[in-house]
């Protein structure tokens, strides 16, 4: 058995035991001593759909940055996909992130490129051969309902459509986890629901979905697991919960 195979098996074992995302007494403090996240522990199992909610400054986005290894925990242990993120080296981060799809509130699309190029870009990064890119990108654009708009510049699209492009880009490499930071924050209610339905479909296909949001109506309606943070502390973690549910 090769070293890579051994490591893969080890990660799978950790995922089985601890879940696909596992936080153990995680604290993230910034210079000045402020705790953005304070002694937070929870696990997210493979295939789960989780909302992380809380007021501004509650530490939701910091949590997402810890999952992405944009930040490193000051204390405690963050394990994602079986990998202890405090031990991961800088040059290993890109490969690690390829297992994660990320969607942001402000879409973060490359404005000077068209829809197809934005999605294909994620495939270029993992060095997918061009012929496969040409096959995969239209497929994922069809999934998010943008099959006919691949030639358009992203600036020619509505907010909802731009978020779909971002979603297609996040999905094209078939990530194990989809992380979304306020994905409906810039969208009208109709587009928000369309995006959330897509998230649900993606989750139904086995992808773990973690959504950081303020959208009370969506959280209350969807009846998924809800993790609530307040001033960096985990104050509630309820299966099929609602926004602001404090038991």
């Amino acid at each position: 058995m090769t070293r890579r195979e051994r490591k893969r098996l080890q990660c799978e074992k950790i995922i089985e035991e601890k879940g696909i995302i596992c936080l153990e007494n995680v604290t993230k403090s910034f210079p000045g001593g402020a705790h953005a996240v304070n002694d937070v522990s929870f696990q997210i199992k493979q295939g789960e759909f989780v909302f992380i909610v809380g007021d501004n400054g509650s530490g939701k986005s910091t949590l997402l940055k810890l999952f992405l290894r944009e930040l490193v925990a000051s204390q405690g242990k963050v394990t994602v996909m079986g990998q202890d993120l405090s031990k991961i080296r800088h040059r290993q981060i890109p490969k690690f992130r390829r297992n994660l799809g990320v969607v942001f509130q402000d879409f973060r699309l490359l404005k000077d490129r068209n829809v197809y190029e934005n999605v294909a870009f994620a495939q270029r990064i993992i060095q997918m051969p061009t012929n496969k890119i040409k096959k995969n990108v239209p497929g994922v654009l069809a999934t998010v309902g943008l099959a006919g708009k691949y030639k358009l510049k992203t600036t020619q699209l509505s907010g909802g459509e731009q978020q779909r492009v971002a979603l297609a880009r996040a999905l094209v490499n078939k990530p194990a986890i989809l992380l979304a930071d306020e994905p409906t924050g810039n969208l009208d209610p109709r587009s928000s629901w369309e995006i959330m339905k897509l998230f649900e479909e993606i989750n139904a296909n086995g992808t773990t979905v973690v959504v950081v949001t303020h959208a009370k109506e969506i959280v209350d309606t969807m009846q998924k697991r809800v993790i609530t943070l307040k001033r960096g502390k985990l104050i509630n973690d309820v299966e099929e919960g609602v926004y602001g549910d404090e038991d």
Binding site: P94, R98, A122, I126
Partner: peptide, 16 residues
Amino acid sequence: KEEISIMKYIGATDFF
């Protein structure tokens, strides 16, 4: 720099 951060978020290596 936003373009660079997008590339990094979706797993681009430093070289890429």
